[in-house]
């Protein structure tokens, strides 16, 4: 290990975002279903949301002035990492309940881990973000763990 990760960077582990509460609309479901070229009527009609719809519902909406020059919104949950080139990441999602129009859902994101590993061509930084989506009854609807790799 090259010890890339300072105490300050590691101190961000456990940081949590402000909960975000959004309403699911039939129109949003239909737009998402069309944009993904879904072929099933229940999604195209917006009766129920297809899996992965939570990405659409909770993608960060930030002012244009807060986008970086490449058009990406800066994730306020993350510290400034000593490596910045993003590599492939992975997702691990559990679907607990279907999502329907009229549902109010709240997402909370937590930075759950930061660690480094030696890669073939140099050190790699991994970080993990857990997103929990709950209904107004506080029951889990979707759990999503994202792992991202920087080199």
């Amino acid at each position: 290990m090259s010890g890339l990760l300072s105490e300050d960077v590691l101190s961000h582990i456990g940081k949590q975002s402000e909960p975000r509460r959004e309403i699911v609309t039939r129109r949003d479901i239909r737009k998402y279903a069309v944009a993904t070229n879904n072929r099933q009527a229940k999604y195209l009609d917006g009766d129920v949301a297809p899996p992965l719809f939570h990405l659409h519902l909770f993608w960060d909406v930030v002012p244009l002035s807060e986008l970086s020059p490449d058009g990406v919104s800066i994730d306020s949950l993350l510290p400034k990492f000593p490596l910045e080139k993003a590599m492939a990441g992975g997702l691990d999602i559990t679907y607990h309940k279907p999502i329907k129009p009229g549902d109010w859902l709240t997402a909370t994101r937590t930075l759950t881990n930061i660690y480094e590993k030696a890669g073939r061509s140099g050190p790699l930084i991994f970080y993990e973000v857990l997103m929990e989506v709950r209904g107004d009854d506080d029951e889990l609807v979707v759990t999503e763990k994202t792992t991202r790799i920087l080199r």
Binding site: P51, A88, G89, G90, L91, D92, I93, T94, Y95
Partner: peptide, 8 residues
Amino acid sequence: ITGIEYSN
């Protein structure tokens, strides 16, 4: 579908 694990 109850879950997925995938990577790009």
